[in-house]
Simulated assay, not measured.
Amino acid sequence: MTSMKLTFDAVSEATPGPKWVARWQRSWPAYEAWFVARGGDNGPSAPDCRDAMRDYMPEIVPLYDRLVALAGGSDRAARFLSTWCPPAYLGGCSLAALSDKTDVRLVRNYDLSPELNEGLLLRTEWTGRAVMGMIEFLWGLSDGINDAGLSVALAYGGRAQTGEGFGVTTILRYVLETCDTVDDALKALRRVPSHMAYNLVLADASGCTASVELIPGGGVRVMPQAIATNHQSGPEPAARPAFTRSYERHAHLKDLRISPRHLNRQFLKSPLIQDRYGEGFGTLFTAEYNPKDRTLGLTLSGERWDQALDAFEEGQRNVDYSQSAGQISAPSYAGHEGAGIDWSRAARIDWAAVGLDYAGGRGRPIHAYLDAVCAIGSEAS
Rank of each mutant, 00 (worst) to 15 (best):
P86S: 14
L90V: 11
G92L: 06
C93A: 15
A96F: 12
A97R: 07
L98H: 06
L98I: 10
L98T: 05
D100F: 07
K101I: 04
K101H: 15
T102N: 15
T102L: 12
L106V: 01
L106E: 04
V107H: 07
R108K: 13
R108F: 11
Y110F: 15
Y110E: 03
S113R: 01
S113Y: 02
P114A: 01
G119E: 04
G119N: 03
L120P: 11
T124H: 01
R129S: 13
V131P: 03
M132S: 12
G133W: 04
M134P: 00
M134W: 00
M134R: 05
F137W: 14
L138P: 01
L138T: 12
W139N: 09
W139S: 03
G140L: 07
L141G: 08
D143E: 15
D143H: 14
I145S: 02
I145T: 13
A148M: 10
A148C: 12
G149S: 13
V152S: 00
A155S: 15
G157L: 06
G158L: 04
R159L: 05
G163L: 07
G165Y: 02
F166Y: 03
G167M: 06
V168M: 03
V168R: 06
T169H: 11
T170L: 15
Y174H: 14
Y174R: 02
Y174P: 09
V175I: 15
V175C: 13
L176P: 05
L176K: 05
E177Y: 06
C179R: 11
T181S: 15
T181Y: 00
V182Y: 01
D183V: 05
A185F: 07
L186A: 00
L186R: 06
L186Y: 00
A188Q: 12
A188R: 14
R190L: 07
R190H: 12
P193E: 10
P193S: 05
P193K: 07
S194W: 08
H195R: 13
H195A: 13
A197S: 14
A197Q: 11
V201C: 12
V201M: 10
V201K: 11
V201H: 00
A203D: 10
A203R: 08
A205S: 15
A205F: 05
C208G: 08
